[in-house]
Design a protein around this nucleic acid. Structure first.
Lengths: 343, 343
DNA sequence: TGTTAGCACTCTTGAATAGCGAGTGCTAAT
DNA sequence: ATTAGCACTCGCTATTCAAGAGTGCTAACA
């Protein structure tokens, strides 16, 4: 196990590197207030810490930087929680300042504010309606060829999707369709709508509507949920301000990765509630080797809805980011619960 | 005026630079097939072209690169239109391959495909509903505190917006509200909805609904249109692959600018129908000094709806991009008109 | 035995220098 | 009017050099 002195040194190294982005050497460490022993002692300790894998050198005679393992230890054991200052809290509260009631907009806004507060990139994973139950479905005809289906779920999420009509459809057909759907699908989880339509609704459609086949596929397609929830970003360009990304190849691979929603989704689909931290290679994505991802989940009541994450360099201000994310996600949960929980 | 030989040289310089991104010198020019005179002659001509402002040097003894003015002349007079090849056409058609009927998704998809085809950044300005007429408005109650208003415009655009309810509101109030709105607002342009509500609807609300004041503001706020139409992007990271943006400051200022929707909107809100080309400083935005923006508009019927643009380096493949944009925007107009034009 | 001072050594960084290659402008010959 | 020839310029790359920061090791010290 590490001695107290080693822990202290590790902690100071990480803190220092987080703020300077420069390898930290024994001499500059020895000048720190909290450190009362000589640079030679520090060198010995650092040598041990390196052997244990907590810190590394960038070249033979450089100062040390924390390794992924070092950050991991720091995050797990050495982190002192930071209280948000008033400006931060005020800023977070401004998420709800405008009168917004759209769930997605609130989430999107959170990502924006969070990225501004941290100067890192924020990623919000939109509300998962997958397991929501259908509360209401309404059909509005648009013209001869198309109509809109409006879906309301039990957690108050509303979506409208357009679908095509068979040539022969008339107003009464649509009304019948709406009635059948409402009759059969209310209370059904969104993810199984498609299935249910083919299994239960099909029969009824056939009885009541001519050309039911076209209508069937059309409405079933429409109610298919997308493969993943929406992603919202804030501060995509912020990483350009981090010194570690002055390396052109690094910034390119990161930016290219961020553009591919699939890979981001892969990173962010984290289910454990609370705060999750992935450091550097723990993300299993070479473009993320120099990045850490901190994720917090938000819910309505007890039902976990989505997450909000900060993507920053491994050298990120863990303490601040964790505090912010924790605060925002709790806040978000409270607000959303109040706004949307069905009585 | 320029001599034929000068035009030829200008054209070859631009073509060459577009493909190599390297300043082009007299000797390499003289080796080109289409050029039958010596490098010394070319040097003289280039000297004249430089004096006229069409080309410039990067340093005293470098080859020449086109100036903004040079590109402008090239675009206006020297461009040979390029026919799309089969793969391109096929790719463009794939925009509509999936059965999508959401206007916004089609536009978004166009931006994505276009960015992939060009390797530049695509920006689509979403449909302007501003001048659309309200065709139908529907209110769906969600819970005690909130309801959704679904707005359908005459061009088939559907949107849902949530709004808050007064404590006292009951189902019959909402029904009344919906009736009043439908009675009074159908045919009214979306941009003047808010106004009309305060001027006409207010009186009626007062007569029929208790606590009408809260309801009035709530629904009026909800129907206020956003300050600008939605923007969709494709290939934001593509510019990282352009050699001119290996300069860190350039890429940072560009990326930061792209993140600010307001400035993009400013660039893209171009009303003339057809193809619009802005080269380098013509964009009046220092982050765009090394970029050109080519914009094409799309419509439903004769009503101009939005635009789709390509943002690339000034050294962009104008001919190809123009052909693509022209094709896509026409296609888009045709498809949308067929899908959405109200009969 | 743990701590520290001292020292030789390593490596990065930035500045200075030189040679190469591509390109220009000018002049004189065609 | 065109072109060959030539001196000159500038960017690019490689090399060298010194300064500075840091390390590891050894020997002395409390």
């Amino acid at each position: 196990m590490l001695t107290d002195r080693q822990l202290l040194i590790l902690q100071v190294i990480v803190n220092e590197f987080i703020h300077s982005a420069q390898p930290v050497g024994s001499r500059s460490l020895s000048k720190k207030e909290e450190i009362s022993f000589s640079s030679a002692t520090i060198r010995n300790e650092m040598s041990d810490l390196e052997e244990l894998g907590f810190i590394e050198k960038t070249h033979t005679s450089s100062g040390r930087i924390p390794s992924d393992k070092g950050y991991r230890y720091y995050v797990d054991h050495l982190l002192s929680p930071q209280k948000l200052n008033k400006q931060d809290v005020h800023r977070v509260k401004s998420i709800y300042a405008e009168q917004i009631y759209e769930l997605e907009k609130i989430v999107q806004n959170s990502a924006k504010i969070l990225s501004e507060l941290t100067n890192y990139t924020a990623i919000a994973l939109g509300p998962a309606v997958r397991e929501n139950k259908l509360k209401k479905i309404q059909i509005i005809p648009l013209n001869k060829q198309a109509a809109v289906a409006i879906i309301v779920t039990d957690s108050g999420y509303v979506q409208n999707r357009m679908f095509q009509l068979p040539e022969t459809a008339d107003a009464s057909d649509l009304e019948k369709l709406a009635n059948i759907l409402n009759d059969r699908l209310i209370g059904v989880s969104i993810e199984s709508l498609n299935d249910r339509i083919y299994k239960e609704v099909a029969v009824l459609l056939r009885q009541h509507i001519k050309n039911y086949d076209f209508m069937l596929h059309s409405i079933a397609d429409t109610l298919l949920i997308p493969t993943h929830e929406k992603l919202f970003f804030g501060g995509k360009a912020n990483m350009l301000n981090q010194p570690e990304f002055h390396d052109f190849e690094k910034i390119r691979s990161l930016m290219t990765m961020i553009e591919q929603e699939d890979s981001i989704y892969e990173l962010v689909r984290e289910n454990r509630s609370g705060i999750n931290i992935k450091i550097g290679r723990e993300n299993n994505n070479s473009a993320m080797d120099n990045c850490s991802l901190i994720t917090a989940t938000y819910s309505i009541g007890t039902e976990q809805l989505g997450s909000i994450s900060i993507l920053g360099p491994t050298r990120m201000e863990y303490s601040r980011v964790i505090s912010l994310l924790d605060y925002i996600s709790n806040d978000l949960t409270t607000v959303l619960t109040k706004l949307y929980q069905s009585e």
